[in-house]
């Protein structure tokens, strides 16, 4: 599924999270090509899917193409948790892809 999977790279750890785990998004002080938008930082969501191993876009954007790879997940949030003034159904949700180093167990 992931065409980057064949690239040589250091071994990467087993996924730390499984679907159903509650996770909090970290607010890492990282500049550059970061794929974690601010609106989910500090928020608590639920892992819905492990998406596989990916070379970290934070490295790839600057030509560091040999890894290490990182585990990726899709995480779901309640919209009413993300936005204090959310107008809509209480069961509306937002799904986003997050890399493991941005997540901690909640």
């Amino acid at each position: 599924m992931n065409p980057l999977a064949a690239a040589p790279r250091p071994a990467c750890g087993e996924p730390r999270f499984v679907p159903g785990d509650r996770v909090r998004v970290l607010d890492l002080p990282r500049p550059g090509h970061v794929r974690t938008p601010h609106y989910v930082r500090h928020k608590v969501g639920t892992v819905v899917e492990y998406t596989g191993l990916f070379l970290n876009p934070e490295d790839l954007a600057y030509g560091r193409c040999s890894g290490p790879a990182v585990n990726g997940y899709r995480v779901v949030f309640d919209q009413s948790h993300l936005w204090r003034d959310y107008r809509g159904s209480g069961s509306d949700r937002l799904f986003i892809e997050l890399y493991e180093h941005w997540l901690e167990r909640a």
């Binding site: 990916f54 509306d92 986003i96």
Partner: peptide, 15 residues
């Protein structure tokens, strides 16, 4: 309708 959930997917990374 209000009884239909909206699922927003932020296509922020590799998928």
């Amino acid at each position: 309708p209000d009884d239909v959930e909206i699922h927003v997917h932020d296509s922020n990374a590799d998928l």
